[in-house]
Simulated scan of single mutants.
Amino acid sequence: MFHDACHSPTQSLKLAYLAQHDSLTGLPNRILLLERLSRAIGLAKRHQHQVALIYLDLDDFKPINDSLCHAVGDCLLKSVAVRLSDCIRDTDTICRQGGDEFVVLLSEIEKPQDAVRIAEKILGALAAPHQIGNHELRITASIGISLYPDHGTNDRTLLNNADTAMYQAKNSGCNTYQLFKADMNDTRDQRTHIESQLHQALKEESLFLNFQPRVDVTTGDRVSAEALVRCCNSTVGNMAPMAFLPVAETSGLIVPIGHRGLREVCHRLQAWRAEGVNIVPIAVNISAIELRDNTLPVRIAEVLAETGLETHFLELEVTESSLLHNQNVGLKGGEKGISYKILVRSHC
């Protein structure tokens, strides 16, 4: 005789639990978080207290996950979940939002400083080394905070505003927190618009390079040059580098933009040589995000092979500030015996 296992009370409870909890960490998932947040808002409205959402994203988790394998990354996420649980009360909720993002619901607070205190506690707890097998890993987080009723009166608005504040914290240098402010939405809308313009620029091939020569002051001879990527959009015209480059980095578009610039430099050098010009080495700016890309050596080798350019005419340049804010970076050895000259530039 056959029967439907779903009709078993035990099985039904198990399925309900799985539907509302993250399979890796055992934490509540987004579905359960929204239910509890809606309930907390209703109680706060009735009893005249506040609710806080703490939205956090781990800084530079992807390089750890990619370089040490996903099993190590999963263990690190479990360790983070345990430490978060130690920072809150039994009446609060921790949700794994997905990937390396977590949300903490403080169901009842009296003043904003209560949420700030928990955010500071979380940053301190996560900063201590995580022992994962033979690896001692260090991780930080960027945190955004939104409050009911100051920053929204429904679950979706509070979640979106906490997320916005988190991105502001990440753009401020990571390992910090930000309370939501209304003008952050304007900043985010502007960044979204710039990101859209960059996608369009890549599609229309309206990115171009300016070349800045370096001259030997004693002889006046050109000894090298630096290639600077610029963007001209059909709608807004020339975009300031300080406006679009940070957006390119946070959106991941810096990788295709950097690859296009790399190819353009190598092709341009060979074209000048064909015209009889005595070419000099050219430095291409590489972001710390690109240095974390394991495919970078292969892509460089492919471009050099495609153009026939000798390696000593290509230099990679990265700023000190970029390295200081992204310490988990490193370029693996050259592809097929190719070596690279990496310049570290002080950016004042």
Rank of each mutant, 00 (worst) to 15 (best):
residue 72 V to I: 14
residue 66 D to T: 11
residue 57 D to K: 06
residue 70 H to D: 10
residue 62 K to R: 14
residue 84 L to T: 02
residue 74 D to N: 15
residue 72 V to S: 07
residue 73 G to P: 06
residue 67 S to Y: 07
residue 62 K to P: 08
residue 71 A to H: 14
residue 61 F to V: 03
residue 74 D to F: 04
residue 78 K to Q: 14
residue 82 V to G: 02
residue 80 V to G: 04
residue 86 D to C: 05
residue 66 D to G: 13
residue 63 P to V: 04
residue 72 V to H: 04
residue 60 D to F: 03
residue 55 Y to P: 04
residue 79 S to A: 15
residue 80 V to L: 05
residue 79 S to Q: 07
residue 61 F to E: 00
residue 73 G to K: 12
residue 63 P to L: 05
residue 65 N to R: 12
residue 82 V to N: 10
residue 71 A to E: 14
residue 73 G to L: 07
residue 59 D to V: 06
residue 64 I to H: 07
residue 74 D to L: 07
residue 60 D to P: 00
residue 75 C to Y: 02
residue 84 L to W: 03
residue 61 F to P: 03
residue 76 L to D: 07
residue 59 D to Y: 00
residue 72 V to D: 07
residue 81 A to Q: 05
residue 65 N to P: 03
residue 64 I to L: 10
residue 70 H to M: 11
residue 80 V to R: 04
residue 87 C to A: 14
residue 72 V to K: 08
residue 75 C to A: 15
residue 77 L to D: 02
residue 79 S to H: 06
residue 73 G to Q: 04
residue 65 N to V: 08
residue 62 K to I: 09
residue 58 L to G: 11
residue 86 D to V: 12
residue 77 L to N: 01
residue 73 G to S: 10
residue 85 S to E: 09
residue 61 F to A: 03
residue 85 S to M: 09
residue 55 Y to Q: 05
residue 66 D to N: 10
residue 62 K to Q: 11
residue 58 L to D: 03
residue 73 G to W: 09
residue 84 L to C: 09
residue 66 D to W: 10
residue 57 D to F: 01
residue 72 V to R: 08
residue 69 C to Q: 11
residue 78 K to A: 09
residue 85 S to V: 02
residue 70 H to S: 15
residue 80 V to A: 05
residue 63 P to G: 09
residue 76 L to Y: 08
residue 71 A to S: 14
residue 55 Y to D: 04
residue 72 V to G: 04
residue 76 L to M: 13
residue 56 L to R: 00
residue 68 L to S: 10
residue 75 C to P: 02
residue 86 D to K: 05
residue 61 F to S: 00
residue 77 L to K: 05
residue 75 C to E: 15
residue 72 V to N: 07
residue 63 P to E: 09
residue 68 L to T: 11
residue 82 V to W: 01
